[in-house]
Amino acid sequence: MIDTLEASRKARAVLDEIERAVVGKRDALTLVLSAILAGGHVLLEDFPGLGKTLAARSFAQTLGLDFRRAQFTPDLLPADLTGSFIYDQGQGSFEFRAGPLFTGLLLADEINRTPPKTQAALLEAMQERQVTVEGETFRLDPPFHVLATANPVEYEGTYPLPEAQLDRFLLRVGFGYPDAAEEWEVLRRRLERQQEEQTLSPVVTRDELLAIQAAVERVTVDPDIGRYCVALAAATRSHHHTLVGSSPRGGLALMLVARGYAVIAGRDFVVPEDVKAVAVPALAHRVTIRPELWMTEISGRTVVETVLGQVPAPTARDRV
């Protein structure tokens, strides 16, 4: 068992190591790590070439996890992910050949390019942390995390994830374009490296990651903070731009990720600032905007930002 300070030190070391490969995205990386420490899965949604795959691979390397990458194509079948029974002629019996789901960290690349049937198979495994093939159930050993990527601009030949499936991702994070200095730093490091491959050192082992996740479970969440998470999720439901607001799972996600965020900050308690920091990536993808506003700049993000500016934060007066 490790304490919060040690967990925080290791988490920061992981981020420092990843920043050797992914330049200038500390905030986004902190959010992704918070979700992993909270035991969840992350959807990385951004334009091509912004380092989503690199980030996923970097997390796998530094967290000491087995890494598999599945390229989601239109002809991908559920069995290609879960694995299937193959007849062994020598033994005269069927044996199970595990698919890429049986790993520590799975990169589901371009998840919206595969049909809903295959998406559902992955998302079921993410939720249940087990896979059933031919009536036989196989458990996915912890830690099991999925980092899925999606491209938000290309809609031709894609199958956008329905809201119910988006809800299963603890966070949706975008990296955004780097500024000029950061972009040059990417180029400079490539020149310095003299090779395409970027290899990072493992910072923690699989067992240490489990210990950090256990430390996150011990983080104190004041009842007022919990009520604040509930109020934020509920406020997205009553917002006038919203068709369907966040489910209660959104409020739960908010609290869980806030705990991971608190541990990275070196605290064994959650403060309102943690909740606000993770609110947009934790809630925005769970909000469906009214159809008449689709062509405007209004989005799940703007709804959550508005709600953050309206819902009263827990104060000292609640206690005194």
């Binding site: 104190t220 004041d222 007022d224 903070i225 605290r267 064994d268 308690f269 959650v270 403060v271 206690r319």
Partner: peptide, 10 residues
């Protein structure tokens, strides 16, 4: 310090 006093259990 206030945040620690207000929201922590330690």
């Amino acid at each position: 310090l206030y945040r620690e006093a207000r929201f922590s259990a330690h």
